[in-house]
Design a protein around this nucleic acid. Structure first.
Length: 214
DNA sequence: ACCCAGGGTCATA
DNA sequence: TATGACCATGGG
């Protein structure tokens, strides 16, 4: 798609979501819900420092301690609960290695059953932890394509996801790159310039008038 | 002193 | 089905 080429040409390839493990990526996906990634990094660092970045450690840690580790990432009580649910599921299923053999549709359905994992978090995990060709639709994606006049913006998640997946070849590296580029574009351009000089795409600041550039 | 961040759940109508 | 409240820290 033309939008992808412009983003890629302007912002370059992204080595995104560099987790040391599949599990770390899954944890990051939950912790970053409505939260800046810099805060998530601090929480993950706390888990590592406590040697608690494992399903067993998180599943068995007292709530107070787990919440304390997660504190920098915000919503720490909620997220402690969500990580426990995620870990309980992982353990119940026999670990990430076994889960990785499931077909994408089955794995997605399973993830959505886990308390605290919604469509976007599930797709983050499918794409970045399990390398499945799933297109992640986040707030930035909606905003960008809405401002480009290509969608209304209030479509349901599943509709947009299939819209993107139909328009593109099912390729996990491509989807990883695309989603990363959209996020990088948002961070790069917002609050700096009224328009991205490199890719000529509209900025993604939450409250900015739609510029009629495209 | 605001506004915002790589959402999701739950209670209401 | 569709809104709204709520969760909570840290950076700009």
């Amino acid at each position: 798609m033309a939008v992808y080429r412009r983003l890629h040409a302007a912002h370059g390839p992204q080595h995104w979501w560099p987790g040391d493990s599949t599990f770390e990526i899954m944890v990051g996906a939950v912790l970053t819900q409505n939260t800046a990634w810099t805060n998530v990094e601090k929480a993950i660092a706390n888990l590592k420092a406590a040697k608690a970045l494992s399903p067993a450690a998180i599943a068995t840690a007292p709530h107070r301690r787990l919440a304390a580790w997660l504190k920098p990432s915000g919503y720490f009580n909620i997220k402690a609960q969500r990580l426990r649910a995620l870990c309980a599921w992982l353990i119940r299923k026999g670990g990430a290695k076994r889960i990785a053999r499931l077909p994408t549709a089955v794995l997605r359905a399973e993830l959505l059953q886990v308390h605290g994992i919604g469509p976007e978090t599930a797709d983050d995990i499918l794409l970045y932890a399990f390398n499945r060709p799933v297109f992640v639709v986040d707030a930035y994606t909606r905003r960008l394509f809405q401002r480009l006049g290509l969608i209304r913006g209030d479509e349901k998640y599943e509709l947009l996801r299939q819209w993107f997946e139909t328009a593109l070849v099912a390729d996990a590296p491509l989807f990883s790159e695309y989603h990363a580029l959209i996020v990088v574009h948002a961070k790069d351009v917002c609050r700096k310039r009224p328009i991205c000089g490199a890719c000529k795409l509209v900025p993604l600041c939450p409250s900015r008038e739609i510029s009629k550039d495209s």
